[in-house]
């Protein structure tokens, strides 16, 4: 257990460092680029406003909030303070709704969509990959190229194809949104049913993409494990094949967890784009409309939230991994 706590502390520290880095990136990148974000904000806001005093007032208001006239270090701390207070400013495109308000609802949708989809895809993909590695033969021969095809299929492409087949042609599912446009979010049966109905296609498209990549990884991992010395030794000790297969899958599956932790960022990125195809009310659609509307506070807030979500999930997976894989504890104890 001592090894584990050391591992845990290390991962926690890493979470802190990466979070700080995420803040810095999110703050610094737009600031360093040519153009003053506040000037951009004001020029957006001032559209249709005729008095220059009004524009000036808005400018000063925002300059105050972002601390634009202060040194860059101080600006950064103002930014961090604002974020921790949940003050991301006011959205332009949905004026006067505060950004934090928009994000709160979008985050819920995104987590509810992506987390189950990635987990289901991960489990299915690993099972398929393991079976392919063990069975070899035609199953493997067919599965590998198919997995390569699917996993390299752009997530948005998969989304579009599913949408066209099942929503536009067959009309089994709705084409867009998170629930019927005529509904008010309440906990009624009708609403839940509508949400589930809208959930199927985005969910499927993320699951399918995840399956392909995981199956390939698991296949290589399992082939590697099947050739490991302990398999030969266990066989010669008379252990039954199905028991050995259990060993192999467990051992191959565990590193796949780290794989999941490392690729979760890429997956979420792809899924975010897939969300936009379905106009799903999550972060993807939010950032799409924010980019279109030049809504700087919203873009900045969404990117930060996505990054932090990914970092936290990554941390949780690693913590769980360390808990189930003795190999990690051992290397830490040394």
């Amino acid at each position: 257990m001592k090894g584990y706590w050391k591992y845990f502390r290390k991962k926690l520290l890493w979470l802190l460092i990466t979070t700080i880095f995420a803040f810095v990136l999110n703050f610094l990148l737009p600031t360093l680029m040519p153009g003053d974000p506040v000037a951009g904000i004001v020029s957006r806001l001032a559209q249709g406003m005729s008095t220059s005093t009004g524009v000036k007032e808005i400018y000063e208001n925002y300059a105050e909030q972002f601390g634009i006239n202060k040194p860059i270090i101080e600006q950064f701390f103002i930014y961090v303070r604002n974020v921790f207070r949940g003050e991301f400013g006011v959205s332009f495109t949905q004026y006067p709704r505060p950004v934090s308000d928009i994000i709160k609802s979008a985050v819920t949708w995104t987590i509810a969509l992506q987390l189950p989809a990635i987990i289901v895809g991960w489990i299915l993909g690993n099972t398929l990959g393991a079976v392919a590695a063990y069975r070899k033969g035609p199953f493997d021969k067919a599965l590998l190229p198919l997995s390569i095809l699917i996993s390299n299929f752009p997530a948005f492409g998969m989304a579009v194809i599913l949408l066209v087949i099942f929503a536009v042609r067959l009309r089994w599912f709705p084409t867009s949104g998170g629930y019927g446009f005529d509904m008010i979010p309440t906990l009624s049966w009708g609403f839940v049913a509508s949400v589930l109905h809208h959930y199927v296609l985005p969910f499927l498209s993320i699951v399918l993409i995840t399956i392909g990549g995981q199956a390939i990884g698991m296949r290589s991992m399992a082939i590697y494990e099947l050739n490991a010395d302990y398999v030969k030794y266990s066989r010669f000790m008379g252990i039954k094949d199905n028991q050995i297969v259990k060993y192999v899958f467990r051992n191959a599956m565990l590193p796949q967890l780290t794989g999941l932790a490392l690729s979760i960022g890429t997956m979420v990125g792809g899924s975010i784009v897939a969300e936009t195809i379905f106009s799903y009310p999550g972060l993807g659609t939010t950032i799409l409309s924010a980019i279109k509307g030049q809504d700087y506070p919203l873009v900045s807030a969404v990117t930060l939230i996505i990054t932090i979500m990914v970092l936290i999930v990554n941390f949780l997976v690693e913590v769980f991994y360390g808990f189930v894989d003795p190999r990690i504890r051992a290397t830490q104890a040394e």
Binding site: L29, M33, P34, G35, G265, G269, T307, V310, N314
Partner: peptide, 20 residues
């Protein structure tokens, strides 16, 4: 390792958004 965990799409979005 830092850049591995931070989604590259997000960095891309931030940079691209910042370039006029």
């Amino acid at each position: 390792n830092l850049l591995i965990v931070i989604p590259s799409l997000i960095i891309l979005i931030l940079i691209s958004y910042s370039i006029s």
